[in-house]
Design a protein around this nucleic acid. Structure first.
Length: 776
DNA sequence: AGCACGCCGACT
DNA sequence: GTCGGCGTGCTC
């Protein structure tokens, strides 16, 4: 960050609201400082609010500025590094996002510090006039007093007149604990005496309920003891919150064989092998006094990465810190402080760790850079790997990615590819035989099934029986949760629909209810078809419930477990090595693989392919390799049921085993890279999706047309603007979304197009998603 | 994002 | 007559 030669008299401050950063005058005594990355309290709608200094205020002001109230961090120890501030600023500008939205999304700690607030009138000022029109309210006098004692609006008007002195000082976190006292009043009942005795034995209880639980009495008894003064609360300094411990220290025995480049990728192998390959580079950075940030897409990977990498810090004389949204506010604060003080120079965390105050960041590692979990679903809708590149660039840090397969976006980077995991693949190709695949009876048993068998093919049944005979374990990947994709009338094909969305309701057998997986609407199963009166229903499209039931029927006596978002069985028996079958959605893969896993089956692979998105086959390919590396040591039989048995992604997996191709995991992404060049898709283009929605369909359509018209007026070509078209689900939660896809040659061009979108008053809700992950 | 203001429909 | 829906605009 180039420092301004002369400190500015006003600061640009980002507040956690979806708006641009605003200017504030530097607070009293700070006119000579320019504390980029420090937090500052600013007056906001009459009350103090924490913001982050992100730049210098513009020198010419059309209106007079409010003065910031107080700087919360010392300028030499900013809350966020200046380079990160610069990176986020540039990245937000390139995506056309208001800066406050980005900061609200990416800074996960420090917005709500505990502060003591005291105020007094400036010398000689009489503030009584400020209280006149309202009901009699207290006003600050010449002595310091607690700011909480005054109306915020009153304080703000005094503040605005420059007649208020105030101070905000951090208060150390405390906990209140309960101790027995000697000076209680009045006799105690037997129960109360019992509670008091127990407390004498176990003083320092954290809550009344823990006391009551421990003493084995009701909470009213301990409340009475407290009320009579036989016990009292004491405020004590809170102990530092517990954080997961580092793994045992280790150093790799191998030399560094990763590419030497500004950015590189590491693929192939299994997780542990990749961790061993990364270790020398991480330790070299730490030895040289630099910092390393390891970014993970979700919590399952976070745990694995922490277990594998946290032990690398200690041999280099530093610590490791974990940071993610799963931590409590206290833990986050503590972890941030470890990083900021320099005690931890290795950080493993989620996207929230991107703003971590690491000094001299030398290496930023992005694990599984193609994972859709990196797409933030709300707010800025950031594609985190993009943001990570901006941060690495601003710090001058090298950027590495690591995962079993490379994303198409990184496949051309300098690489180290470990041998592909071993795969034993068996395909059941429904496409080869004419079938009626997704049909299944609900009320009528024994209906004709496909010649290969569905949802459990003959081959799958045979292998499942073997698994049971040999006391081994199997895992089945179902296309969806619930019992079935829909319920339909065998007479007229009608399927019950959601009242708020244009989708068929999903059938949940155990609850015997229909559910909308878009908006959560639930209702009972109708007695008969609303269209023709038929009283029977047929289910279509098996989910976890259905498949678990099929397996239980096939293998009597075999334990069958289910894992999906709304049903998670306890798998401890499986993890202890007991025989069984687990049926789950993709969520299953975020858990450790059962140790005796002999079979891993994808019951309908086409679910991953029948998605209207140009990345569908890339995702499918990545899923197959994820399955191949799930078990850390073994290669269980991978059985794939599909209508596209010769799909190139599947072929790539097959070829990787027959040839000794060194780059087998990147074969398919390379192919995709070429294909996307001819189609003009990323990484050869920059995309943004514009969603225009309104409660009224015609209004939504008109608003979307208005956005398109504005784009063409601004010089966009037909190549660059696709749509508008109704969203794949034409109505969601009662509104009609329309989509436009912007496709630009460069980030700069995309920026121009987004500016045109931003300047229209369309007459509907407009949302922009830069680097979208799910397209129609 | 909140939170105000302001404009139209359906109730005690 | 008002209560309350949500469209629009503003926050230094």
């Amino acid at each position: 960050m180039p420092a301004a030669p002369v400190p500015p008299s006003s600061w640009l401050v980002a507040v956690p609201r979806p708006i641009p950063a605003y200017d504030f005058a530097a607070p009293h005594g700070h006119a000579g400082t320019f504390p980029v990355g420090c937090r500052v309290l600013v007056p906001w709608r009459g009350e103090p609010l924490v913001g982050v200094v992100v730049g210098a205020g513009s020198e010419r002001q059309s209106h007079r500025l409010r003065e910031a109230l107080q700087l919360l961090d010392a300028p030499e120890r900013p809350w966020v590094p200046a380079a990160t501030v610069q990176a986020l600023g540039e990245w937000a500008a390139s995506a056309g996002l208001p800066l406050g939205l980005v900061w609200d999304d990416l800074l996960g700690v420090g917005w709500a510090p505990a502060l003591a607030h005291r105020v007094r009138a400036v010398a000689g000022a009489d503030l009584t006039a400020f209280a006149e029109n309202a009901a009699p309210a207290a006003v600050p006098g010449p002595q310091w007093s607690d700011g909480a004692g005054y109306l915020p609006a009153l304080l703000d008007s005094v503040r605005e007149q420059g007649l208020l002195e105030e101070e905000f000082t951090p208060v150390q976190p405390t906990v209140s604990r309960i101790y027995p006292t000697a000076q209680g009043q009045g006799p105690l009942t037997p129960k109360q005496a019992e509670a008091a005795e127990w407390l004498a034995e176990y003083p320092g209880q954290e809550s009344l309920s823990s006391w009551a639980r421990g003493a084995g009495v009701s909470s009213s008894v301990v409340a009475a003891v407290l009320a009579r003064g036989h016990a009292a609360l004491h405020e004590e300094a809170a102990p530092p919150p517990a954080l997961p411990p580092c793994a045992a220290p280790w150093s790799p025995g191998l030399p560094d064989s990763l590419p030497v480049a500004e950015r590189w990728r590491l693929n192939g192998g299994k997780f542990a092998a990749r961790a061993r390959a990364l270790a020398p580079r991480i330790q070299a950075q730490l030895q040289a006094g630099g910092s390393v940030l390891v970014l993970v897409p979700e919590h399952a990977t976070l745990d694995r990465a922490w277990a594998a990498l946290s032990g690398l810090a200690e041999p280099c004389g530093t610590g490791a810190a974990l940071f993610s949204g799963l931590l409590s506010p206290e833990q986050r604060e503590h972890s941030w402080e470890q990083i900021r003080s320099g005690a931890a120079r290795l950080v493993v965390g989620s996207y929230l760790a991107l703003t971590a105050p690491l000094a001299s960041l030398g290496l930023l590692l992005v694990l599984d850079e193609g994972s859709d979990a990196y797409k933030l679903s709300s707010g800025s809708r950031a594609w985190v790997p993009d943001t990570a590149q901006a941060v690495a660039g601003a710090h001058g840090a090298e950027l590495g990615t690591a995962g079993v397969v490379p994303a198409v976006e990184t496949v051309k980077w300098p690489a180290l590819e470990l041998p592909a995991p071993r795969v034993r693949l068996h395909t059941v190709d429904y496409g080869a035989a004419p079938t009626q695949p997704e049909l299944g009876p609900l009320s009528m048993p024994g209906q004709a099934q496909s010649s290969l068998g569905y949802p459990l093919s003959h081959d799958l049944r045979a292998v499942l029986r073997q698994v049971q005979e040999r006391g081994r374990q199997a895992a089945l990947l179902a296309p969806r949760r619930g019992y079935s994709a829909l319920l339909r009338c065998p007479q007229c094909d009608y399927a019950p629909q959601c009242p708020n969305c244009d989708v068929a309701l999903r059938f949940h057998r155990s609850a015997h209810q229909l559910m909308c997986h878009q908006c959560g609407h639930r209702q009972n199963v109708p007695r008969s078809c609303a269209n023709c009166g038929e009283a029977m229903w047929q289910t279509k499209g098996p989910g976890t419930e259905w498949l678990a039931q099929e397996v239980a029927q096939l293998l009597p006596g075999m334990p069958v477990y289910r894992v999906d978002r709304d049903h998670q069985d306890d798998l401890s028996a499986l993890h202890a090595g007991g025989s069984g079958v687990v049926v789950g959605t993709q969520l299953l893969l975020s858990q450790p693989a059962p140790p005796e896993l002999a079979l891993l089956a994808v019951t309908l692979a086409d679910t991953w392919l029948n998605v209207p998105d140009f990345r569908a086959s890339e995702r499918y390919h990545a899923l197959l390799w994820e399955l191949a590396e799930w078990h850390p040591a073994r290669a269980p039989l991978l059985l794939v049921q599909t209508f596209q048995g010769t799909h190139p992604a599947l072929e790539a997996l097959r070829r990787s085993q027959s040839e000794d191709a060194g780059q087998s995991v990147s074969l398919y992404p390379r192919q995709e890279w070429e294909l996307r060049r001819t189609l003009g898709y990323p990484p050869h283009a920059c995309l943004a999706q514009v969603e225009v929605a309104a409660r009224d369909r015609d209004r939504a359509r008109a608003a979307a047309d208005a956005v398109a018209a504005a784009l063409y007026t601004a010089g966009a070509t037909a190549q660059e603007v696709l749509g508008p078209a109704p969203a794949p689900i034409a109505r969601v939660r009662g509104v009609y979304p329309y989509h436009l896809l912007l496709r630009a040659r460069s980030p700069e061009r995309l920026r121009e197009l987004l500016d045109a979108v931003g300047s229209v008053r369309a007459g509907g809700r407009v949302r922009v998603d830069v680097s979208p992950r799910h397209l129609s």
